[in-house]
């Protein structure tokens, strides 16, 4: 990553730190805010947070890796989350995840090489009655079908491969 960007990120982390009282108990809220702003937790940023709160780097890392929500790598421009809670799983959420994986050619937890899409699974977003559910760029959508997956991706500007194009032609 170019140095300039790194610099920028550290400046943002510093600003976040200035808004909080620097107690170890504030570690999680601070990391959450860093992630909200930068979309992930850069390594240098975590170091800086640790130094400021008087927490060893390894402990910051242990918190950052314990909680599912924290990301250590920048996500894609579009974030796709597929719910695999009980209700969604039973209503075919795994099939929806499969469809995304196949279309994007990544596994859950990964980002496409062009950093356009990242795919994650979540455990229940609280709309179980509308299962299966996806959350795409913070927008929750219920009753998603495999065909709708193509619709969602098209809406995000995903260039369909040839196979997908043909399917559309036949519909």
């Amino acid at each position: 990553m170019p140095d300039v960007e790194n610099h920028d990120e550290l400046r943002q982390v510093t600003e976040i730190l200035q808004r909080h009282s620097l107690e170890p108990g504030n570690l999680i809220p601070i990391l959450q805010e860093v992630q909200e702003e930068l979309q992930y937790l850069p390594r240098e940023g975590m170091r800086l947070v640790g130094r400021s709160l008087g927490i060893p780097e390894v402990d910051v890392y242990s918190v950052a890796t314990f909680y599912n929500q924290f990301r250590l790598n920048p996500p894609g421009r579009n974030q796709i989350k597929v719910c695999l809670g009980t209700a969604c799983h039973m209503m075919g959420g795994y099939i929806i995840l499969d469809c995304f994986e196949r279309r994007l050619n990544v596994h859950e937890g990964e980002t496409t090489p062009d950093r356009e899409f990242s795919l994650e699974r979540v455990a229940c977003v609280g709309c179980c009655t509308l299962a299966p559910v996806t959350v795409v760029n913070e927008k929750t959508e219920g009753k998603v079908t495999p065909t709708r997956v193509d619709g969602i991706l098209a809406g995000l500007g995903f260039k369909k491969d040839q196979a997908a194009g043909k399917v559309e032609a036949e519909v």
């Binding site: 695999l84 809670g85 009980t86 209700a87 455990a123 229940c124 609280g126 709309c127 179980c128 009655t129």
Partner: peptide, 12 residues
């Protein structure tokens, strides 16, 4: 924290 995946009463 409503951790049970498949429950949403607390959210509601």
């Amino acid at each position: 924290d409503e951790g049970d995946p498949g429950a949403f009463m607390d959210r509601a």
